[in-house]
Amino acid sequence: MSISTSDIKDGYKDAILLPKWKAFQTIIFLECDVGLDDSKKIAAFDFDGCLARTSVKRVGADAWSVMYPSKPEKLQNFYNDGYKLVIFTNESDIERWKNKRQVAVDSKLGRLENFIKLVKVAIQVFIACGLSHGVPEDPFRKPKPGMWIIMEKEFNSGLPVDTNQSFCVGDAAGRPDHHSDADIKFAQAIGLKFYVPEEYFINLD
């Protein structure tokens, strides 16, 4: 799995992406935020239900809120400790909303950009747009590790990730009240320590 310059697009199918965002196959990504440093230590996060509280009933760049008040401080601490912060998030609406794809793209990218502005720390972002029931299965949609493989191989300055120092935080942990187990299985496929959001953030609130 590799990327050439010709593989990278400025839009996702018929949707135009915001500046700095690019597309590769079924991924939309923010490769290099201002101040982002590649690292062997990766702090990986889901977005919806982990970093931000969102609703499937609302769309728009401002239709979200921070899950825990401690989150900006915690993320800034990780950054200062030499971690590269990376968001890996699934967003099948971008693929499913064929007649409103631009709306879905603007909503997701706008929320992510506004979150990054709020926490005041550089974050790399990968969005898997493939469908959960696709045939064949999309290699980038969590729990598949494709987004991680692309990040480490193509967008980390050739630095191999130290999985012993890296970790993953997500809300989809397969518990009875959870919508799926995609995040924990994503972490397991890579070999990362896994935590649910309250384990990492609530103790600072």
Rank of each mutant, 00 (worst) to 15 (best):
F47I: 01
K193F: 09
G146V: 12
V34C: 14
K20A: 13
K142W: 01
K193A: 12
V56G: 06
A182E: 14
I28E: 09
L192F: 11
V103W: 03
I127G: 12
H133R: 14
A104M: 03
K84P: 00
L131C: 01
T89S: 02
T26C: 11
R141H: 11
V66I: 15
G49R: 00
M147T: 12
Q188G: 13
D46V: 04
N164A: 04
C32N: 14
D10L: 06
P145N: 12
S107C: 00
K142T: 07
I42N: 00
I190R: 07
C168H: 14
F47M: 08
S55N: 15
D93L: 05
S107N: 02
V121A: 15
K153P: 07
I184D: 11
I127C: 07
L17E: 07
W148M: 10
V196K: 01
F24Q: 08
A104R: 05
I8C: 05
G49K: 03
D10A: 04
E95P: 03
I87Y: 04
H133G: 08
Y12F: 15
G170D: 02
A104I: 08
F47D: 06
E199Q: 14
F194P: 10
S70F: 02
P19C: 10
A122C: 14
L112P: 00
Y195S: 04
R58S: 14
V169G: 11
W148V: 07
A44Q: 09
V169S: 05
F115W: 00
F126M: 06
D10W: 11
G35I: 07
V169I: 13
G60W: 09
I8Q: 00
A182F: 05
T26L: 04
N80K: 15
A23F: 04
V56Y: 14
M147W: 02
S166L: 04
V125Y: 02
R96A: 11
S132R: 09
I3G: 10
L204R: 15
S132V: 03
E152P: 08
P139G: 12
D62W: 09
E113Y: 09
V86L: 01
K117T: 07
A104V: 07
R58V: 15
E137S: 15
E113C: 14
G60A: 06
F29G: 01
K142C: 12
V121R: 01
S39P: 00
I184L: 10
S65G: 08
P136G: 01
T163A: 04
A63K: 13
L131P: 09
D33Y: 04
P143I: 14
D7T: 14
L51K: 06
L36R: 12
Y68P: 08
G11W: 06
I116F: 11
G170A: 09
A172Y: 02
S39Y: 03
S4I: 07
E198G: 09
I28S: 02
R175W: 10
A172T: 11
F201K: 01
K40P: 01
L17A: 01
P176Q: 02
N90P: 07
I42T: 02
I127Q: 00
I150K: 08
K84W: 08
Y195I: 02
V135K: 10
A23I: 05
I16P: 06
Y195C: 00
S132W: 00
G174P: 05
K71A: 13
I190C: 08
S6I: 07
D205G: 14
D14M: 04
S39K: 03
P143N: 12
S4D: 12
D183W: 03
E31V: 09
D181G: 11
S166D: 13
P176D: 10
I202Y: 14
F24L: 01
